[in-house]
Each structure stands twice: as structure tokens, then as C-alpha cells.
Amino acid sequence: MIAAYGTSGGGIWTGRAVFVVVTAVLILLYLFSFGTPGRQPPLPDLLYCSIICVVVRRPGAAPFWLVVPVLLVADIFHMRPLGLWTLIIVGISEIARYNRAVFLNQVFVVEWLAAMAGFLLALGVQQIAMILLLVNTPPFETVFWTMITTALAYPLVVALWSGVLGFRKPHPAEVDFARDDG
């Protein structure tokens, strides 16, 4: 049953498989040539949006031991500092996971703002970490525009996950927070 993805029922492994396949496709997508280098605006971080979206809706489908390898693979293929973005996003997604009860009863805008605040935090931490590690930081404009495009993409990504793939918000009554940690 599609609606049962990622709840603690039998569909949990289906949910995980869907999560892995979709994120793999997203990672691949970034490997295609998208026109001239230095294009403005840069592409949104769809992987971040997907992870937060799934973690909030069906945490069982995206346990951290799946999120880590997915992000690591992205780090490897997108030529980013190895492990840094993974470390940051796993941290942020765990925060989202522990506070997901907050989003269940709220309107979508709250979740959207929270997700973007998390992304901003992640970018900030990344910049600081890169300065501390004496690595070339990405230019401010690129970071800024990534933020904007990611913010715009978040509702679309949520629409994809909950509308097309069936990762809807569970009804508050059917959530068992103790078992759902993944």
C-alpha cells in the first residue's frame, strides 16, 4: 500500500528503497552538463530538500544510516570536500527528526521556513568550517543564489514526495514516535 511507505508497518523497506532510488537519480542529475560554468542562478540543492522532506514525513524511510551514505556519495561525485556537507546535513536532519512532531500539526509554511532556516544554518556552518580548514570558500553570490533557488524548490520537492511518491504526512493519531526513529 503506497500510503504506508515508511511508517513502521511492512512498507518500511519499500519506502527505504524508494528513498535510495530517488536520491540516486538526483545525484546523477547533477552530473549532467547544465550549460555554461558559472551560470546564474545555480541549481537548487534538491538532495537537501528531499532528505528533510522525507525525514519529517516518514522518518522510518530515511534512517540516518541511509542518509549518510547517500550524502557521502554526493560529496564524492560532486567534488565537494569529503564528508563536510554530509556531517552538517546529517546533523540538521537529526534535529529535524527529533522535532518533527512540531511540523505535523502546523501549516506547510512553518515547515518550509524551518527547512530553509536549517539550510541557511548548514551553509553558515559550512562556510565557517571551510574558513577554519583554510579551504577556498565558494563565492558569496553562488551561496546566496543556491539559498534562494533551494527555497523556491522546496515546495516542489515536497509535492513530488507527498503527491507522486505517497510520502504524506501521517495522521497524528497513527504516529508512534518511539518506534519511528529509523
Binding site: S33, H78, M79, R80
Partner: peptide, 14 residues
């Protein structure tokens, strides 16, 4: 032949 374009905000490389 160029296989993939692994550019992003950090690296522009193929």
C-alpha cells in the same frame, strides 16, 4: 570524451 560534468558551487570540473 567528456563523461560527466561534476561542477557545482565548489568545483568546476569535468
Amino acid at each position: 570524451e567528456v563523461l560527466v560534468d561534476s561542477g557545482g558551487p565548489f568545483q568546476q570540473s569535468v
